[in-house]
Nucleic acid binder design. Structure first.
Length: 412
RNA sequence: GCGAACGUAGCUCAGUUGGCAGAGCACGCGGUUGUGGCCCGCGUGGCCGUGGGUUCAAGUCCCAUCGUUCGCCCCA
């Protein structure tokens, strides 16, 4: 029989890789709960329309990256490519959106995008998301960014860059886009790369984020969004920055920070690392005040972020091996059951360890005990089985004694 | 969707101008009665990614295909 392989861009996570994911989730839970966030568990499959409407029909994600298929009743369904649209749908669906007040949720889970895999980019990847619904204030943005920062710090990730920008709102962004288009029109046609020539029509903001040196040079003097913000947007952005500055968070302003999803307004931010290859963004987010109404709900201002677990995981050190209190070596086939029962009793007392499940040579069993880093080895052979005793060897010193099994257990 | 590199033992990788499939690690057994780490000996383990082609002969050369990796793009 031929073996069946996993599909491209999908990964099986074994320890210690899976331990890193568990650690990230545990850390996120602890930190987020200090900020009053509750866990939201969302479906992975949604109606396709949720994403095409929520993320934006013209975005790359919707145009060419979604896992979309028909179900048995011919409905178009999509494996979620991101979490925010689903979270908003859940909010509206459940009636919470109409209730007023503030809702704060985090959610973990897999996302799916049909892209060419590379370092830090999988077709199934995992995010930690947090969303705040119902507050328009800049303090909500600032608190969320601080929470993200606290989480990353708690996870031991410190060499990260925080970049912030404001994309303006539906009042001031059109004026800025017009100024930008006028600027591109004034440039020599050869000044931009082929991609950017196209983008200057389709997505003028994206040109600012191009990494091609000629484009960087050509846009060096381009008008900046931060010079075109309306008064409200400017005040909002400055309030966010004021809080972050006063907490001592190191950040940089990046007026060229453009995010690929249509729904962002005002504050946007990104956290990057220089240590994980070309997919350097480990977290990103921003304010999306228009999304809830776009998905059929009332006007509910919102702000959120997403963290890429695979990318964070690349920055995490190898976790320490699990503590091993004991290894129970069994030297005689006939004593295997007694060995297992003794190990069970030790584990019931809260100890961690392993027991021989087959009677291999003493040497190999002791080697295994050493390899596991067991603090203590127990040795159970025919002699001990008959007399109700067991050998107890301290692995660090090598000294060994014989004890009565029942008495030993009751002394723990 | 585009580009480049790479697929040989469980893992990391050698393999010459085409000529009997290799090492290290890991695993198993042993180095005098039932005791780990260091050291030593022996052993298990391979459709050389897959399918064609060239050749007396292919891991090696050619074509195709699948997969992996790193970029582009995009984003977390």
């Amino acid at each position: 029989m031929n073996a069946i392989q996993k599909i491209k861009g999908f990964a099986d996570l074994f320890p210690p890789e899976s331990d890193k994911f568990t650690f990230l989730e545990k850390t996120a839970r602890e930190v987020f709960s200090r900020y009053g966030f509750g866990e939201l568990r969302l479906p992975i499959l949604e109606k396709t329309e949720l994403f095409s409407r929520g993320i934006g029909e013209e975005t790359d994600v919707v145009q060419k990256e979604m896992y979309t298929f028909k179900d048995r009743k011919d409905r178009s369904l999509t494996m979620r490519p991101e979490a925010t649209a689903g979270a908003v749908r859940a909010l509206v669906d459940s009636g919470l959106a109409g209730k007023g007040g503030v809702s704060k949720y985090f959610t973990f889970g897999p996302m799916f995008r049909y892209e060419r895999p590379q370092k830090g980019r999988m077709r199934q990847f995992h995010q930690i998301n947090a969303e705040v619904f119902g507050v328009a204030s800049p303090q909500a943005d600032a608190e969320l960014i601080l929470m993200l920062s606290s989480f990353l710090t708690a996870a031991g990730l410190t060499a990260l860059n925080f970049e912030l920008n404001s994309l303006g709102c539906h009042d001031c962004r059109p004026g800025y886009k017009a100024a930008l288009s006028a600027y591109y029109a004034s440039l020599d046609k050869a000044a931009l790369c082929a991609d950017c020539l196209r983008r200057s029509e389709t997505n003028p903001l994206r040109v600012l984020d191009c990494k091609v040196p000629e484009c960087k040079a050509a846009t060096a003097n381009a008008p900046l969004i931060t010079d075109h913000l309306c008064a409200d947007c400017r005040v909002h952005f400055e309030a966010v920055l004021d809080v972050l500055t006063r907490t001592g968070l190191t950040y940089s302003l990046n007026p060229r920070l453009v995010r690929g999803l249509d729904y962002y307004v005002r504050t946007t931010f990104e956290v990057t690392s220089g240590a994980i290859g070309s997919q350097s963004s480990v977290a990103g987010g921003g304010r999306y005040d228009g999304l809830v109404p776009l998905l059929g709900g009332p006007q509910v201002p919102s702000v959120g972020f997403a963290c890429g677990m695979e990318r964070l995981s690349l920055l995490l050190p190898e976790p320490a091996p699990a503590r091993c209190d004991f290894f129970l070596a069994c030297l005689d086939q006939s004593a295997l059951n007694d060995a297992l029962l003794f190990a069970q009793a030790l584990r019931d007392k809260g100890l961690s360890g392993e027991v021989a499940l087959e009677a291999k040579s003493v040497k190999s069993q002791m080697r295994q005990a050493g390899k596991l880093g067991a603090a203590t080895s127990f040795i159970l052979g025919a002699e001990e089985a008959a007399s109700g005793t067991i050998g107890v060897k301290d692995m660090a010193s090598g000294s060994q004694t014989s004890v009565d099994r029942a008495k030993y257990l009751s002394s723990l």
